[in-house]
Design a binder for these strands. Structure first.
Lengths: 201, 201
DNA sequence: TTTTATTGATTGATGAGTCAATCAAAAATA
DNA sequence: TATTTTTGATTGACTCATCAATCAATAAAA
């Protein structure tokens, strides 16, 4: 029963399905059939709308990034002080849906893919840069520039590290513990660097 | 010119080739032909010795882990104090060959694979546990138990995070900078936790 | 009738795993 | 020592399955 105006609906359904299947199987070598079946359409339709598997994957990463950016923007809007903004960025990174095993698995798969696909790599670099520069912008108000850079680098690394460790879910680090660990890092180093100019969260 | 006793030679050659090709392409969906060609033998021989692609991959991870363990053991032997042992463990993680882009890419591919293969997952869990417990053993001599656990967790996460960020090689963090960042983390938190009982590296 | 949505059937490529055959060293036998 | 047998190393050719991508056909809206 073909209705008109299905294109945006199908596109979204396919992207969401791709994310779910990739997260579930933890690999990009999922088939177009897997994705299409999850979206409730035929494989041919997936090709019709996206042209190729690669393009569908790109669209999927973009949607992940968009979600992350929206969350970050909203969280930053609600934060008043620089120190609160840092905390907001950390919290966004560990939101329940972002930190869910399937989402982590999907991110991991994309990182792995970045070795081969220049397009994928570029998108992930955008994410890394955004996180770093968001942190840096707030930290610069709290301590000398050089220290801000180091702390931003370290915090970003710790966030990514907690993610990758989460993917093995052998040592199930809770969301709260992950946030606390990262907060502690920032607090300790601000204290060491700021020279009194650094309030606690 | 078939010589006798080739089995161990071929096995090693195939494992090394697998590591190189996987690191190079950044994915486990390399073909047995790719690996065999790199090792200078026919695909059939790879199957002859390893039975399946999965088994060859397992053997490859094992060799990575073995290398890491040997390095760690050697480094620990040369370290006298607990604090030196912590530094030694950090340095081992960032040795030039471990931190090389191809090696990092291979690790990433294995992490991604761990979602599907229970065997791969188990091996990676072993690595994560070993790093954590090695750090913990030394840290417990330097600060209260609870703090030692948190610091070990944080340092391990930071190490893994610096790895994954290295894989994008967009912000080329040097080995020395990575070591310094992790050392700073440990030093700062030991100072905060130890209460005087914590010497600098 | 034209356009949009949709799919079943098909194609072409690729890749894991198998198998029988070959070659040469080593061991056994004459 | 000379000859035969056995065993390990090695591969080319093949099978079977999978999957991305294509295409022609159908059905409903406009």
């Amino acid at each position: 029963m073909p209705k008109i105006g299905m294109e945006p609906v199908r596109r979204k359904a396919l992207v969401d399905a791709a994310l779910r299947v990739i997260g579930d199987q933890g690999t990009l070598s999922v088939t177009m059939s897997d994705i299409a079946r999850t979206a409730g359409v035929s494989p041919a339709l997936a090709h019709h709308y996206f042209g190729s598997k690669e393009q569908l994957l790109i669209a999927t990463i973009r949607s992940l990034l968009a979600r992350l950016r929206n969350d970050a923007v909203a969280a930053l809007r609600a934060a008043a002080t620089p120190r609160e903004r840092v905390s907001a960025l950390i919290r966004v990174s560990f939101r329940a849906d972002q930190f869910a095993p399937e989402t982590v698995a999907a991110w991991l798969a994309f990182y792995s893919e970045a070795q081969r696909s220049e397009d994928v790599r570029r998108l992930l670099v955008i994410y890394a840069r955004r996180l770093r520069s968001n942190l840096l912008a707030s930290l610069r108000a709290l301590c000398p520039f050089d220290d801000a850079e180091r702390i931003a680098e370290g915090a970003a690394a710790m966030i990514d590290g907690l993610y990758i460790r989460q993917s093995l879910k052998s040592a199930p680090i809770s969301i709260e513990a992950s946030i606390a660990l990262t907060e502690d890092y920032v607090t300790a180093h601000l204290r060491a660097a700021g020279g009194g100019n650094c309030p606690s969260p």
